[in-house]
Computed example of a mutant assay.
Amino acid sequence: MSVYDKLKELNISLPPVAVPAAAYVPFVQTGNLVFLSGHIAKKDGKAWAGQFGRDMTTDEGKAAARAVAVDLLGTLHAAVGDLNKVKRIVKLMSLVNSTGDFTEQHLVTNGASELFGQVFGDKGAHARSAFGVAQIPMGACVEIELIAEIG
C-alpha cells in the first residue's frame, strides 16, 4: 500500500509547509538524509499552548504530538516530493513543555511515534529522544524535529 493510500485511510490531509517563525529553513537535505526543523503543536491554526503537569494531560499531549507528526509529514512531502521515497524514519527529537515533576514525556511523544508507525509500517520505527523543557517558543506544549532517510 502506498503511503498516500495509508494517509487517506487514516483521513489525513497533508498541510502545506509552515513559514518559519525565525531565521531558519524548514528542512535541509544532505545525501540521503533529510533533517526537518522543529515543528510546534498547533490547534486551530495557532500554537497549542500549555504545560504538562500544570494544565495539560498526557492524553492531550499525545493528540498534540500526533498533530505535530501530521505537520512533519507535510514538510517531509515538500522536501522529497513523494513520501514513498522514504526508506526510514531515522530519529525524532521531542521537546515537551513540562513542569519539573511531570515525567511522562515519553508517553506524550508516542502520539507522533505511533502515527509514523501507522503510516510507514516498519520503515516508521525510529530512534528518539523525549525531553521535558521549561518552555517552548510561543508557549507551545510540544515541539518535534525529524530525520528521515530517502531512497
Rank of each mutant, 00 (worst) to 15 (best):
G53F: 05
D82F: 07
Q135A: 13
T57F: 11
L10T: 04
G139L: 03
E9W: 01
H126W: 01
V86F: 04
E143W: 07
S113I: 15
A79F: 04
K123P: 12
D71R: 10
T57Y: 04
A78V: 05
A23I: 11
F35N: 07
F131R: 13
T109R: 01
A78C: 08
S98T: 10
K91I: 07
R128F: 13
A134C: 04
L107I: 04
V25Q: 12
E149L: 14
D122P: 07
K62W: 05
E145Q: 12
Q135I: 07
I136A: 11
R88K: 15
A41R: 14
Q51T: 10
D82M: 09
L73I: 04
K6F: 00
G31K: 12
G121N: 02
F116Q: 06
K46S: 12
L92Y: 06
T99R: 13
E143P: 01
P16H: 13
V3A: 11
P16F: 09
G151T: 15
W48E: 10
D55P: 00
D44N: 15
D59A: 10
H39G: 01
V17N: 08
F102V: 00
N110K: 00
W48S: 09
L92M: 05
G132D: 11
M93T: 15
K8R: 14
Y24W: 09
K62N: 05
Q118L: 14
F131D: 01
S98E: 00
A22S: 13
S98I: 03
L146G: 02
V96P: 01
I150L: 14
E114Q: 14
D44M: 12
H39Y: 14
L10Q: 00
A140H: 14
V119H: 08
Y4L: 06
V86R: 09
K43P: 04
L10D: 08
A18M: 07
T57A: 06
R54M: 14
D5W: 01
G45K: 10
S94R: 02
D101L: 06
S37H: 13
L7H: 07
D5P: 10
I136M: 03
V80A: 08
A49K: 15
Q135S: 01
K62D: 04
R54Y: 08
D71M: 03
L14N: 07
M138N: 11
G139C: 06
V19D: 15
A112Q: 03
T99A: 11
A47V: 07
G139V: 02
M93F: 11
G132M: 03
V90W: 06
N32W: 13
K46G: 14
L115E: 00
F131E: 00
E60G: 00
T75H: 07
G53V: 12
L107H: 11
N97G: 00
H77D: 03
G74F: 12
Y4Q: 01
A23L: 05
G121T: 09
E143F: 12
L115H: 09
